[in-house]
Amino acid sequence: MTYKLISNGKTLKGETTTEAVDAATAEKVFKQYANDNGVDGEWTYDDATKTFTVTE
């Protein structure tokens, strides 16, 4: 399945996607992506749209 990340960081804003077997796997990928880009904030997940959002 395709999962989307919306980043509302102070230094990184935008969207990216990943293919993953489940939401937990996608979350690990996205949290590593955010960490690699210096984004640390509040996370939410919408199962209906398969979208994670991180806001700093």
Rank of each mutant, 00 (worst) to 15 (best):
M1I: 15
M1P: 11
T2Y: 08
T2V: 13
T2L: 13
Y3F: 14
Y3V: 04
K4F: 14
K4S: 06
K4P: 03
L5W: 04
L5T: 02
L5Y: 03
L5V: 03
I6A: 04
I6D: 03
I6S: 04
S7E: 04
S7L: 15
N8I: 15
N8P: 05
N8V: 14
G9M: 12
K10A: 11
K10P: 15
K10M: 11
K10R: 13
K10Y: 09
K10T: 13
T11P: 05
T11M: 12
T11W: 13
L12I: 11
L12T: 07
L12P: 05
L12A: 07
K13C: 15
K13H: 10
K13I: 12
G14I: 15
G14K: 12
G14L: 15
E15H: 10
E15L: 14
E15P: 09
E15S: 09
T16Y: 15
T16L: 14
T16H: 13
T16Q: 09
T17N: 05
T18F: 12
T18V: 14
E19R: 14
E19Y: 15
E19K: 12
E19M: 14
E19P: 04
A20T: 04
A20P: 01
A20G: 03
D22T: 05
D22P: 00
D22H: 03
A23S: 08
A23W: 13
A23Y: 12
A23N: 05
A23V: 11
A24D: 09
A24L: 11
A24Q: 11
A24K: 11
A24C: 13
T25R: 05
A26H: 00
A26Q: 00
A26K: 00
A26G: 01
A26E: 01
A26C: 00
E27R: 08
E27T: 03
E27Q: 09
E27D: 04
E27H: 10
K28E: 09
K28V: 09
K28N: 07
K28H: 08
K28Q: 10
K28D: 05
V29N: 06
F30V: 01
K31Y: 05
K31L: 08
Q32V: 07
Q32P: 01
Q32F: 05
Q32R: 11
Y33G: 01
Y33V: 06
Y33M: 08
Y33F: 11
A34T: 06
A34S: 04
A34V: 09
A34H: 02
N35Y: 15
D36H: 08
D36Y: 07
D36C: 11
N37S: 07
N37W: 13
N37Y: 11
N37I: 11
G38R: 05
G38L: 06
G38W: 05
G38C: 08
V39K: 03
V39G: 03
V39C: 06
D40M: 13
D40H: 14
G41I: 03
G41H: 02
G41Y: 04
G41E: 01
W43H: 00
T44P: 00
T44K: 09
Y45N: 00
Y45V: 00
Y45F: 06
Y45W: 03
Y45R: 00
Y45P: 00
D46R: 02
D46W: 03
D46F: 03
D47W: 08
D47Y: 07
A48E: 12
A48V: 12
A48S: 12
A48G: 08
A48T: 12
T49I: 05
T49V: 05
T49H: 05
T49L: 06
K50W: 05
K50C: 05
K50S: 05
T51M: 03
T51C: 03
T51W: 01
F52I: 01
F52M: 01
F52P: 01
F52Y: 05
T53W: 10
T53R: 07
T53N: 05
T53G: 02
T53C: 07
T53E: 05
T53V: 07
T53Q: 05
V54S: 01
V54E: 01
V54I: 13
V54T: 01
T55G: 05
T55A: 06
E56F: 09
